[in-house]
């Protein structure tokens, strides 16, 4: 699913050029390792998104295809209401298709700031596809223990202007090269959102978080859970998937 992919991509992809030393590894080496571990040419993920509303919780199942960092296609599978709803993102454009009305709607501008399916994530959050290295300057600030795992705490400071979150903190497992926690900050340093990874399992030789919780900390509530049900790396995805025609299929 695109959403999960987005978060992970944001966390793992950091390019070269960081000079910061941390024990034996530099910040960029750490992130490269995470990237090697988790990233792939293409990805197909079946996942559940659990949204905690004020009076109930709701699970939305979807299948997401991702190619590189810019293109993704998501088809919703369940519940019945969402079935057949598709979302296509190519570069910086986003279309949503609804089978009930057989219409494709392009979202732009202000609409992108709305929440996706009532979750704590906005469309815009999903649209970000630049590499972390292009936007942030990383530093290792400390080592911390989360649960029984040792982590490096990395601080990322934006080096360009047009980012949603000018500062992030990421905790990365020192052995498995998996992020375990991330915090997103406003310009002023105010914590805005918090992501917690859980249920780390090995799949196709990679360590991967099968559960994530994404929460807007300013609001009351439990946030939104993402649970990976199936994941495949580097599978062949037909070209037509990433075209507008595939929305109506």
């Amino acid at each position: 699913m695109k959403t999960i992919k987005y978060i992970l991509v944001m966390i793992v992809i950091v390019g070269s050029g960081f000079e910061v030393q941390a024990q034996n590894l530099t910040a960029n080496e750490i992130i490269n390792k995470v990237d090697d571990n988790m990233s792939s040419e293409t990805q197909v993920v079946v996942s559940d998104m659990v949204i905690y509303g004020k009076r109930n919780k709701r699970t939305v199942t979807s299948k997401g295809y991702t190619r590189g960092k810019n293109d993704s296609f998501t088809e919703y599978l369940a519940p019945a209401r969402e079935e057949g709803t598709k979302m296509l993102k190519l570069e910086d454009r986003l279309w949503i298709y609804s089978p009930s009305t057989d219409r494709t709607i392009q979202l732009s501008g202000h609409m992108l700031r709305q929440s996706v399916m009532g979750s704590d994530l906005s469309y815009e959050d999903m649209m970000e596809d630049r590499e972390l290295t292009d936007i942030y300057e990383a530093t290792i600030i400390s080592e911390e223990t989360i649960g029984d795992r040792n982590t490096w705490k990395l601080e990322l400071i934006a080096k360009v202007d047009d980012v949603s979150y000018p500062k992030r903190t990421i905790w990365i497992d020192t052995e498995r090269f998996v992020p375990l926690k991330e915090e997103l900050f406003a310009k002023s340093g105010q914590l805005l959102k918090k992501v917690v990874m859980d249920d780390i399992k090995q799949v196709e030789g990679r360590w991967y978080p099968f559960k994530m919780n994404y929460k807007d900390v300013l609001k009351d509530g439990k946030g939104t859970d993402f649970i990976v049900k199936e994941i495949q790396f580097n599978v062949e995805i037909p070209e037509y998937i990433f075209t507008k025609a595939s929305l109506k299929k």
Binding site: I51, G53, N56, R58, V60, R81, E82, T85, I96, S98, S100, T101, R103, I105, Q114, S115, M117, G118, S119
Partner: peptide, 16 residues
């Protein structure tokens, strides 16, 4: 016209 909004549960919804 197509009305695009969110349901009582927060799901996306469309209606012509």
């Amino acid at each position: 016209i197509t009305l695009f909004g969110s349901t009582m549960n927060g799901s996306m919804t469309f209606k012509t």
